[in-house]
Design a protein around this nucleic acid. Sequence first.
DNA 1: ATTATAAAGTGTAAATGCAACACTTTTCTG
DNA 2: CAGAAAAGTGTTGCATTTACACTTTATAAT
Lengths: 225, 225
Amino acid sequence: MAPQAYYSIHPKFHAAVDCIIFGFEEGELSLLLLQRDFEPAKGQWSLMGGFVEEGESLDDAARRVVAELTGLRDLYMRQVHTYGDPGRDPGERVLSTAYYALVDIKKYDHELVKAHNAHWVKLNEIPHLIFDHDRMVQDALRFMRYQAGVKPVGINLLPEEFTLTQLQTLYEAIQGEAIDKRNFRKRIAAMDYIEKTGRIDKTSSRKGAALYRFNQDKYDGNFKI
Amino acid sequence: MAPQAYYSIHPKFHAAVDCIIFGFEEGELSLLLLQRDFEPAKGQWSLMGGFVEEGESLDDAARRVVAELTGLRDLYMRQVHTYGDPGRDPGERVLSTAYYALVDIKKYDHELVKAHNAHWVKLNEIPHLIFDHDRMVQDALRFMRYQAGVKPVGINLLPEEFTLTQLQTLYEAIQGEAIDKRNFRKRIAAMDYIEKTGRIDKTSSRKGAALYRFNQDKYDGNFKI
DNA sequence: ATTATAAAGTGTAAATGCAACACTTTTCTG
DNA sequence: CAGAAAAGTGTTGCATTTACACTTTATAAT
């Protein structure tokens, strides 16, 4: 039996990635969703997705797809799950791998987003999405929440410098419940990898709030030895 | 543009599942691994895997593949991750989704396992595996450990009735560290869904140890209001 | 029959971590 | 200069977790 025969008796499938793109604004989490002006499912809402190309890894495909919509590279992205039920895409059979991405909502490319007819939609205002995208969003949200409870991934949703109030509001949005300010600041103070920059943000209060930044090196250092 | 054209300009890929099959014996976790007497990579060690067929979901493919090797159905299985780097399979490009399965090591079909040249290998004696299967095992182990810390999935590795010593030894194997007996039993006592059967196991002690069983209904009930 | 053995089974006290809680400071605006 | 609006700051009680050692029971050996 020729070496290739081992593979060729088996079917092949389209492979896609679908991206759950999280942003944070006005104290709430939002997703960047497409109001599709293209087939299939034209007119309906969906996640941003795309097919995996030859020679492209799944991770690369997900990064490309997010960059096509937002113009942003080097985002924090994680694979969530792969959805493979026959019939999940009513057109042809497609295996789709969901990724979530965290973006600083101040930074995306507005032109690209407009060109794709995409919109930031607050978490509790999300419309029904096509195919199994609703479930993808649920799974991604659960996974992102879990990860945010374990490591400081949420910081990817904020600008490089942020106030403690912003950070707290973010974590309240992620967890979906209020956090005590003093307990929160105590916890942050114990994280030496969240450090004061010395700069002051005057945009949101008269008194001004200290700006902080995430120090990746110090964070990595906590796990050595 | 014909509806199909949307899909057909994109490449298709082989889709496989690879299964990390956990068992528990002699106080240690083991994996059921193949010593391959077939191509590709004949002679090397690998996970049990198989291609996804037409009309078959990923979950179904994983269940089928595990059943082909063990004869067991209705196992506790969870998707871990999908591996899609080009070149991860040196033959042709294959996207592979890893699943872990938990089996009661007393119950598998010895004939089938022998026919596949598969062997139970203790976790700390696992040889190098082909392709990216080493990484799959690491990812599956981490995920299984996490899940075992959150819900009582480990019970799927034990017979239906088990002693508290067996259960403790299992959790020590999963966590990789010793647990205090009195604290462990206190915690179990607080779980009303782990209940005494009234039967006694005399095989491992002169005194005899009470047998317990997992009550799925009571467990589910704990989450209703 | 007695004793030795081997695992099962059992409670308390200290320490740590987590949650609850309210007022002062600062600066700008009117 | 008075008021507003957000930033910033410690302590105490409660709950959870950890540390820790002896008794009980049935069988096997003598």
